[in-house]
């Protein structure tokens, strides 16, 4: 019951926050596209943890459909908190979070799972099930949302081919390298082709060459039209990516800059440039993590 109360009061606080916002002057929408609402829109998003710690402090940002953006900042600045807020793992104390134009905290709680089906999520620690094979890990994600067996049999090998793991479908996670495990996690997140993919430090456990391989895979997914938001504390790498960078510090948004000119490069060009800029060799191949 305390949870219910917390939720209810969070929703109430959020409404109060919104009323407050209406009185305040509206910020300009930098990236508003004609017709469709942005895939992510956060207005004055504030997260307060139990105990009073402010995890996010009036964050306002918009991410358009099809973007490939980065969130950077030192450990503890609120990057994971932002991801959790976007998938409604935690509710903002004030402000508004919209996904594809819908305020996610207004949704009935039993609709939250359906929101999460439209957002793929990837984490630093992969979150694979150790007692299931690569194939079963991906298929499990489909089983638990009630996907028919015929669809599971069709989609699972297809997505594992896309991430380059068709040869390892019967292996268990502990028989794979870190990069391969992250590929399984990405396959699981992307198997339903969600319009939005969130990655929380996807390369945090990986070496630079393997990391480039994972970034290349995320870029390939972005090229299919999926919006990709990657969280990382590796500012160095992000600077070389030449993409939009949103910087957080102590829960506040301190920088939001777009680097133009590189948006149309192919996956191969992207990988080659990354390797050159990072000063690592070419021998890794497209998978880059063997």
């Amino acid at each position: 019951m305390p949870l219910l109360n917390r939720r209810r009061s969070a929703a109430k606080r959020a409404r109060e926050g919104r009323e407050h916002r209406r009185r305040a002057p509206r910020r300009p929408r930098p990236r508003a596209q004609s017709g469709q609402p942005p895939i992510i829109s956060v207005e004055d998003g504030t997260v307060v943890y139990p105990g009073g710690h402010v995890g996010l402090d009036r964050i306002t940002l918009e991410i358009g459909r099809g973007e490939f953006a980065f969130v950077v900042g030192p450990t503890g600045c609120g990057k994971s908190t932002l991801i959790k807020m976007l998938i409604r793992e935690i509710e903002p104390a004030a402000g508004r979070v919209q996904i594809a134009g819908k305020d996610i905290n207004e949704l009935d709680h039993n609709r939250t799972p359906y929101l999460r089906r439209r957002i793929g999520t990837v984490f630093q620690d992969f979150k694979l099930l150790p007692n299931r094979t690569v194939y079963d890990n991906v298929a499990y994600a489909l089983q638990v949302i009630g996907e028919p067996r015929s669809q599971i049999r069709r989609k699972t090998p297809e997505i594992l081919r896309l991430v380059g793991l068709q040869a390892k479908i019967h292996n268990y996670p502990d028989e794979l390298s870190g990069g391969e495990q992250q590929r399984v996690a990405i396959a699981r997140a992307f198997v339903n082709h969600p319009p939005l993919l969130l990655a929380d430090e996807p390369t945090g456990n990986l070496d630079p060459i393997t990391s480039i391989g994972i970034m290349q895979l995320l870029y390939r997914i972005n090229r299919t039209g999926t919006t990709v938001l990657v969280v990382t504390h590796d500012r160095d790498m992000v600077d070389k990516m030449r993409r939009r960078v949103i910087a957080l510090e102590e829960g506040r948004l301190v920088r939001d800059e777009d680097a133009s000119g590189y948006h149309d490069e192919s996956t191969r060009e992207f990988a080659a440039r990354m390797r050159a800029e990072m000063g690592v060799g070419d021998e890794g191949g497209t998978n880059g993590d063997h």
Partner: peptide
């Protein structure tokens, strides 16, 4: 772990 994954990929309660 299974429960965490189920929640993450949007399994209903």
């Amino acid at each position: 772990r299974e429960v965490e994954v189920m929640r993450l990929v949007g399994a209903t309660n």
